Structure formats: structure tokens, C-alpha cells
Amino acid sequence: MRSNNFLDLGIRAGYAPLNDKELYWFVVFKSSPKDEEMIGKPELILKEVIDNFAKHCPQIFLEVVRHSDLSTVTWAPLMFRLPWALIFGQACKGNITVAGDAMHPMTPDLGQGGCAALEDAVVLGRNIGNSLRNGKILSGEVAGALERYVKERRWRAAGLITGSFLSGWVQQGGWLMKFFRDMIFYRFIFSRIVNVVRYDCGKLPSVLDSDTKVD
């Protein structure tokens, strides 16, 4: 069985095979506070998906949902941070900073959440590594290294947040949104918002790049 994705007004759904016996399926929709009642109640989640959220999806998807193992069914809100909150907000203080989802929670529409966290690690490691003196981190250098790390990551992470949100948003509309998505957004706008494929976060410094003396 191959992967399939389904779009309807206000929802995205799909499934993907994990191995010969297991499938991963999902439904994304705009929730309300009332929907939080489904947390921890897999039977209710399946009922709502089949009877409400995914009722217009193809029968094959509904069959996948019906045959789910209840112990694997979960419901969770997608976390999102406004891009300008990251650009203008505070992401470090003294010797403390954030990385990964703590810095840039985003919708999964670009599949870049984990990738962005790895980029954070490289940039953070590089800035701290460049502060080494004789193989040691000077306490007075750490705060400056973290500030440089945040400055370098702000706009990149904000672009990913924006691109991820818009990529999901254009998938959940009617025929007018479909036209905008297929003819305009992915052709002319998307690549200007975020560089997913050709982004280079730099290299980590080696021991030889520090001031350590090697005999």
C-alpha cells in the first residue's frame, strides 16, 4: 500500500505505510476548546474522525481509521509561534537559551521541525566552539556566543514557521484556494519565503580551529 493524502474544506488527512503490517494515519483540522474533551479517549477520537472530521474522505481512509489499534490513537494540538514573536522576542538571557521546539514550534507541513532543531545544534555548537580558549569555555564568552546563535537563527526559524503555516493553510480551502495554491503559491511565493533544500547552516569548528596548541 502506498501513501495517500486527502484534502477537503478545513481538513487534511492521509496515511502512510510504516512496514508490512502497520500504517500511520492522521487528520488535521481547526479545533475548538470543546475538542479537548477527546484527549485520552481513543474511542471518541475515532468516532469523531469517522462521523465528522473525515466523513468526506474516501472509503479506504475511513477503513484504515476503523481498524486502528485503540492503544495507538492520540489527539494533540499543533503548537505554533508567531514569526514576529521570534524575530522581536527574547530567546536568550545570560547563559540560558532555547533550541528546537522550545524556540520554534511549527505545524508539520514542511516536515522541518526536527531538521530545524539539528540546524540549531550546529549553529549553537559553532558559536560556543568559536568561544573556546585553550580548549576551555570562558564564562564571560558564553552569553555573547548565545546572543550570536539567536541572531543567526531568528530569521531562518521565522521563515520556516511562516512557510510551514502557509503551506498548511493553502491546502485547506475550496476551489479558489486550490487555484492560488497550484498556480501561484508553490510556483512563485513559497521559494521566496523559505529555503528548505539548499540551506547551509555552516560547519562545526574543529579542535584545530581553537587556540589550543598542538605539538
Score class of each variant (00 low, 15 high):
Leu62Ala: 04
Cys115Ile: 04
Pro58Trp: 01
Val65Pro: 01
Ile96Pro: 07
Cys92His: 15
Glu48Leu: 06
Ile96Trp: 09
Leu44Gln: 14
Trp84Ala: 13
Gly113Thr: 08
Gln90Lys: 15
Gly111Phe: 03
Gly100Lys: 01
Pro108Ile: 08
Cys115Trp: 00
Pro83Ser: 03
Glu119Met: 01
Ala99Gln: 04
Gly114Lys: 03
Ala102Arg: 09
Leu70Ile: 11
Thr97Arg: 04
Thr72Glu: 10
Val49Ile: 06
Ala121Pro: 02
Ala54Pro: 07
Leu46Val: 04
Cys92Pro: 09
Ser71Cys: 11
Gln112Trp: 10
Leu44Glu: 12
His56Phe: 15
Ala99Met: 10
Glu119Val: 00
Val73Arg: 00
Phe53Lys: 09
Val49Asn: 00
Trp84Asn: 14
His104Asp: 04
His56Ile: 14
Val64Asp: 08
His67Asn: 14
Trp84Glu: 15
Asp69Asn: 06
Ala116Leu: 06
Ala76Ser: 14
Ala54Met: 09
Gly89Cys: 02
Thr74Cys: 10
Val98Leu: 01
Pro58Asn: 06
Cys115Arg: 01
Ala121Phe: 07
Pro58His: 05
Cys115Leu: 03
His56Gln: 12
Leu86Lys: 07
Ile96Leu: 10
Ala121Ile: 03
Ser71Trp: 11
Val49Trp: 05
Gly89Thr: 02
Arg66Thr: 02
Arg66Cys: 01
Arg66Tyr: 03
Arg66Gly: 01
Val49Met: 05
Asp69Arg: 01
Glu43Phe: 15
Asn95Ser: 12
Arg66Val: 00
Leu118Val: 08
Phe88Glu: 13
Phe80Lys: 08
Phe88Tyr: 09
Ile96Met: 10
Ala102Tyr: 14
Ile87Pro: 04
Asn52Val: 02
Phe88His: 09
Phe88Arg: 06
Ile45Trp: 05
Phe80Ser: 02
Gln112Cys: 11
Leu110Phe: 08
Met103Phe: 07
Pro108Asp: 12
Ile50Val: 07
Glu119Leu: 00
Val73Phe: 06
Val98Tyr: 04
Phe80His: 09
Pro42Gly: 09
Pro105Arg: 01
Trp75Ile: 12
Met106Val: 05
Asp51Lys: 01
Trp75Phe: 13
Glu63Thr: 11
Leu46Tyr: 05
Leu86Cys: 05
Ala85Gly: 11
Leu46Trp: 05
Met103Glu: 13
Glu43Cys: 12
Asn95Thr: 12
Asp120Pro: 02
Met103Pro: 03
Met79Tyr: 13
Ala91Ser: 11
Asp109Gln: 14
Ile87Trp: 02
Leu46Ala: 01
Ser71Ile: 11
Asn52Thr: 09
Gln59Ser: 15
Ala102Gln: 12
Ala85Trp: 00
Lys93Asp: 15
Asp109Arg: 12
Pro58Ser: 06
Glu48Met: 06
Asp109Leu: 12
Gln112His: 11
Trp84Ile: 13
Gly113Arg: 08
Gly89Pro: 00
Gln90Thr: 15
Cys57Glu: 11
Arg81Trp: 08
Lys47Pro: 03
Gln112Thr: 12
Arg66Gln: 07
Gly114Ala: 06
Pro83Gln: 06
Arg81His: 10
Leu70Asp: 07
